[in-house]
Design a protein around this nucleic acid. Structure first.
Length: 305
DNA sequence: AAGACAATCTATCGGCACGA
DNA sequence: TCGTGCCGATAGATTGTCTT
């Protein structure tokens, strides 16, 4: 007799989603210093860039200076001189160069030239008004440009950091919890049949289960595999994507691929989710767990003895 | 031969725009 | 106003290539 993960009632889902959203609220409002450090890091980059390119003065931007700037890892800051900033991918296409890697550009000054020609054409005149007049910036102009540019870059960095942290943080919590329950992590494996992968009292991370990657895979006591997807959503709009488009799709794939009696697809949730989406995903065979209540994971694992 | 660097691929969440 | 599809910006892993 196999044990199934709990199916939550609407009321239970509503309660947990409220707790989860409250936790998100608290975390987002907490002062972490992340903004401060990203701002400072960005500011330093632009200051260095200004220095290397003589405040973007006409004449200060030579091929040698540009190559030097790229070599110092300032290509990123360079992209952010554009209004609006150009992404790495876009710049490569628009400038029509083969590579934006510093080592490659170092040997091809003409490629650097092409890159800067693009930047020049789309440079943000709101931040760098002195470029148009061909004069030196006033101290205020220079400072305003540094401020605005640093904020622009730092904001993007924060957004990216949140994406990575949301996932990694949650995955780490799950793994730590499993360890606390006596499980041992084993190296990532490609799991083609149900007997492969983690053995009793083991789990692995980032395993390829069939043809889809699972964040954490645990061997249950009754030999089934539990595939846990870690999902962070910070808005109700995105809850449907994370749950129904990402996790439930994989759940259905695994259930079909390995059979309903062999795998237990689950999603570990934190952040903001809509109750309706939770119900839909659960309906589709996805077991729901909350990062704020990891003991439920332990209880289920125990129930498979 | 080793280590640095570059290219490629895939995954993350977030946000916009469109249509019901 | 709401639900949905699509895409953007980036990180990290892996694989490939070049230097020293």
């Amino acid at each position: 007799m196999t044990s199934s993960p709990a199916r939550w009632t609407t009321a239970e889902l509503a309660e947990d989603s409220a707790i989860s959203a409250a936790e998100f609220r608290t975390e987002r409002l907490a002062v972490t210093g992340a903004w401060e450090s990203h701002y400072q890091a960005a500011r330093s980059k632009f200051e260095l860039l200004f220095q290397k390119l003589s405040n973007l003065n006409p004449g200060g931007v030579t091929d040698a200076n540009l190559t030097d700037a790229y070599g110092s890892g300032l290509g990123e800051a360079l992209r952010y001189l554009a209004g609006p900033p150009i992404s790495d991918d876009d710049l490569q296409v628009i400038a029509n160069v083969d590579s934006l890697a510093p080592g490659v550009l170092k040997k091809k000054p003409e490629e650097v030239r092409k890159v800067f020609e693009v930047i020049e054409r789309v440079i943000d005149v709101h931040r760098f008004p002195w470029i148009e007049t061909g004069t030196n910036p006033t101290d205020q102009e220079r400072d305003a440009a540094l401020l605005a540019s640093s904020v622009l870059l730092a904001a993007q960095r924060i957004a990216t950091e949140r994406r990575v942290e949301g996932k990694d943080g949650q995955e780490t919590r799950v793994k730590d919890y499993l360890r606390s329950q006596g499980f041992t992590e084993v190296p990532t494996a490609t799991i083609t049949t149900i007997v492969k992968g983690p053995q009793p009292m083991q789990f692995c991370a980032e395993c390829l289960l069939g043809e889809r990657k699972a964040d954490v895979v645990v061997r249950l006591h009754d030999t089934r595999l539990m595939a846990i997807e870690c999902k962070v959503s910070n808005s109700a709009t995105n809850s449907v994507k994370r749950l129904n488009n990402d996790a439930a799709v994989k759940a259905e794939y695994w259930l079909k691929m390995f059979g309903t009696s062999q795998v237990v697809p689950a999603a570990m949730l934190s952040g903001v989710f809509k109750v309706m989406n939770l119900e839909q995903a659960q309906q589709r065979g996805l077991a729901l767990l909350w990062a704020h209540d990891l003991d439920k994971l332990g209880l289920f694992i125990e129930s498979t003895r």
